[in-house]
Design a binder for these strands. Structure first.
Lengths: 173, 173
DNA sequence: TCCCCCAAGTTGTACTATGCAACCAGGAGA
DNA sequence: TCTCCTGGTTGCATAGTACAACTTGGGGGA
């Protein structure tokens, strides 16, 4: 981090002597992506009262998969099965999901969103989307599309090139 | 760009009849920023065993500020002073920072990086920068600069937008 | 068929990060 | 001086997580 940032988000750039414009852009990208991640992480605790961080993700996965087992969730998000088990228990207590015994294999509990769960998930999703819309309000459409394209390109690369130290990084999600 | 499938499969894209291309771009941006945040969070612990994401951030702030108080850190990162106090204690135990009593005001402990701290921070920063360089390798310079600009613009907006409990928070994933 | 082993989930335990509240110590003003 | 404010620490509670031991159900081979 080579940057000072005021509470207003103003950024002071310092360009080293031998640096090319491209290097400088890379650094800015790194810094700003990190800022975003930190901010996101920092506000994780002030999540929707009903829906913790992981809970939201799990609900989203249930919505899109149309129901799956706890083991599937654990594998998909690289979480321990005990962690998922407790999360699932909490979500069930909150009436956001329900369990149905798989008739084929009685060891398996297939998890499904309840109506309430679907509604809460939609609410939270909508409120996230609203926040993004506000922040991106007034951007020219061309900029929005290029920004989206860049992010896709970046993430596609990141998926294949995890931060180095260990190979397990590939299990990120 | 309406179809973006990260390996995580977080969000189902539903493009309603009345939705513009700009709306679609906003959704893609939201999804991809979230993917990035999750990946960053998940891999944070792997970048350097010695340095958690928060620790890394705090060290970085000390480096760029040239020394500041624990209260400054807490305010800047919206952390509780007790949290910072404990983080600082750990960093001091690890010999990465040192405290110097402010001669002007004996209540204040000005925190400074030690040589070791500076070295470790540089190492981690370099390894992160390398990862970013790899992911951005081959991008045309114009794209890099636009991407950097967009991120700056986005984060500036995010910094100003009121943090509503169920908006920004939900962003994390 | 019966037994053994594997897979899905649950529960006990421990550890980390965190916030809040109570507290301590140094400063500043009435 | 006395009171109040500020920087910091510590006690306590909670969330989220992993690991290991355990429970229950399935399936394959002798």
């Amino acid at each position: 981090m080579t940057t000072a940032r005021g509470s207003d988000g103003t950024v002071v750039e310092e360009r080293g002597a031998g640096e090319s414009a491209a290097d400088s852009a890379v650094e800015t990208i790194q810094r700003e992506m990190t800022v975003f991640a930190r901010r996101a992480r920092a506000s994780a605790g002030r999540m929707h009262p009903q829906l913790s961080l992981v809970s939201y993700t799990l609900l989203g996965h249930l919505e899109e998969s149309g129901g799956c087992s706890a083991t599937d969730l654990a594998a998909h998000y690289a979480l321990d099965k005990s962690t998922v088990s407790r999360q699932v228990a909490a979500l069930e207590r909150a009436d956001l999901i329900e369990r149905r015994l798989d008739p084929e294999d009685h060891r398996v509990q297939v998890l499904h969103l309840t109506e309430v769960g679907r509604r809460i998930l939609a609410q939270v999703t909508e409120s996230r989307r609203q926040a993004f819309r506000e922040r991106l309000a007034g951007w020219p459409e061309g900029d929005l599309e290029r920004f989206a394209t860049y992010l896709l390109r970046y993430n596609a690369a990141a998926a294949v090139m995890p931060i180095r130290p260990s190979a397990e990084a590939a299990t990120v999600d």
